[in-house]
Structures are given as C-alpha cells and as structure tokens.
Amino acid sequence: MELVAAIIVAFLLLAGALFSLIASIGIVRLPDLYSRMHAASKAGTVGSGLLLLAVGFHSQELPILARALAGFVFFVLTAPISAHLLARAAHKAGHRLMAPSVRDDLAKGLMERRSYKMKS
C-alpha cells in the first residue's frame, strides 16, 4: 500500500512540476501580456493544483486530503476567472495585442456596444 501511495505522490509531483515549468517557460517566452497571462493561468493552475494534491496524498490523513482537495477546487475555479478579469482590465487600459494575433474580440465587442449607445 505504501508503494502505491508513493507512486501516486511521485506522479502528482512530477506532473505538477512539469506544468509549473511549462507555465514559467510560457511567461518568459510568449510575446504579449495576454499570451503570458494565458500560460500563467492555465498551466500554472494545473501545476499548482497537482502539487497541492500531492501534498494531500502524501500526508495520508483524510482531513488534510480534504483541505487539499478543497484548495484545489477553489484554485481551479478562481485562477482562470481572475486572469480573465485582469486581461479585460489590461485591454481597457490600452495594452494592445501583438502583431501575430489575428482577432481582438474585446475591441469588437466594445465597438458594438459604443455604436449601440450612440444610436439610442
């Protein structure tokens, strides 16, 4: 039983570390604010959540595992939403997309809302 638990913990630690590494590489290598925020929120959330689950399984105590699961769920629900709100705030503040980006749905939506307000 201890061997199975150790394998699960090792797998979760390796997977969490890999996702965290991918997120950090994405933050350094991607060209604009929005791409970096995407890498940090998606891969960083999964990496941190897997590391949190590894700690919960390693403790081998149900209350600690329950707290780790609750923290994982809370983190998965809140991190992408906060990244989305930060990206919207950055867009409203004037940070533009890089040239390779082909669509700006926020600008399109803002222009439609402004034209609707002007018509009424």
Rank of each mutant, 00 (worst) to 15 (best):
residue 77 L to E: 03
residue 77 L to N: 03
residue 120 S to Q: 10
residue 23 A to C: 13
residue 9 V to N: 08
residue 109 G to I: 02
residue 36 R to H: 03
residue 119 K to N: 03
residue 90 A to C: 07
residue 77 L to V: 11
residue 93 A to K: 13
residue 70 A to F: 09
residue 10 A to N: 06
residue 80 P to R: 00
residue 90 A to L: 10
residue 33 L to M: 10
residue 51 L to D: 05
residue 38 H to Q: 12
residue 26 G to Y: 00
residue 45 T to Q: 06
residue 52 L to I: 11
residue 17 A to K: 00
residue 67 R to K: 15
residue 30 L to W: 15
residue 4 V to L: 12
residue 37 M to L: 15
residue 52 L to D: 01
residue 10 A to P: 00
residue 39 A to P: 09
residue 31 P to E: 14
residue 75 F to D: 01
residue 118 M to P: 00
residue 109 G to A: 13
residue 15 A to H: 07
residue 78 T to A: 09
residue 46 V to Q: 11
residue 70 A to S: 09
residue 58 H to V: 07
residue 57 F to P: 00
residue 35 S to Q: 11
residue 62 L to F: 11
residue 21 L to H: 14
residue 4 V to N: 11
residue 33 L to S: 13
residue 115 S to I: 12
residue 81 I to D: 02
residue 102 V to I: 07
residue 71 G to S: 08
residue 110 L to W: 09
residue 11 F to Q: 07
residue 92 K to G: 05
residue 115 S to H: 04
residue 113 R to F: 04
residue 35 S to T: 13
residue 62 L to T: 13
residue 78 T to P: 02
residue 35 S to H: 12
residue 120 S to L: 06
residue 105 D to V: 01
residue 89 A to R: 04
residue 44 G to T: 06
residue 92 K to H: 11
residue 84 H to R: 01
residue 57 F to Y: 15
residue 24 S to T: 12
residue 61 E to A: 14
residue 39 A to R: 06
residue 118 M to N: 06
residue 98 M to D: 15
residue 16 G to N: 04
residue 115 S to R: 03
